Lab assay of single mutants.
Amino acid sequence: GQVNVNNTTYTFPTPKLAKEFAQKAAKKYNLTVHVSGNTVTVK
């Protein structure tokens, strides 16, 4: 799974890890998680 945070893309071996990372990043920066297919964007 891929996660985009502040124009930086992070790649994870599983969608589960990507989702967990996205949720932590969203909480940390007070942003929202947007899911589109296999790509998760935090903005």
Rank of each mutant, 00 (worst) to 15 (best):
G37L: 03
N38I: 06
N30Q: 07
Q23K: 14
L17Y: 04
V33Q: 01
K24M: 14
N4W: 05
T11A: 04
L31Y: 06
V40D: 00
K24F: 11
P13E: 08
V40Y: 04
P13T: 07
K27T: 08
P13F: 04
T8F: 15
N6G: 12
F12V: 00
A22H: 01
K16D: 11
V35A: 03
V42I: 15
T32A: 09
Q2M: 12
Q2T: 13
K19V: 09
E20S: 07
A26K: 14
T41A: 03
T32R: 05
F21P: 00
G37H: 04
L17G: 03
N6P: 10
Q2A: 11
N6M: 14
S36V: 14
N30I: 03
K28A: 06
A25C: 14
T41E: 05
V5K: 13
G37Q: 04
N38K: 08
V35D: 01
Y10L: 08
N38G: 03
L31M: 09
H34P: 01
T11Y: 14
A26T: 09
T14I: 02
N4A: 12
H34R: 06
P13W: 04
V33N: 00
Y29S: 08
A25Q: 06
T32N: 08
V35T: 03
T41P: 00
K27L: 10
P13R: 06
Y29T: 08
V40I: 04
V42A: 02
A18N: 00
F21V: 02
Q2E: 11
S36Q: 12
T39V: 12
Y10T: 02
V42M: 05
T8D: 09
G1H: 12
K19R: 13
T14F: 03
A22E: 02
Y10A: 02
V42K: 01
T39R: 08
A22D: 00
T14A: 02
A25L: 15
F21S: 01
N30C: 06
Y29R: 08
A18T: 01
N6K: 14
K16E: 14
V42F: 07
A22F: 02
V35C: 04
P13V: 05
T39G: 02
L31K: 04
V33R: 00
G1E: 10
K28I: 12
T39M: 08
G37N: 05
S36T: 09
T41V: 10
A26Y: 06
T8Y: 15
V3A: 11
K27I: 08
E20M: 12
K24I: 14
K19N: 10
N30E: 05
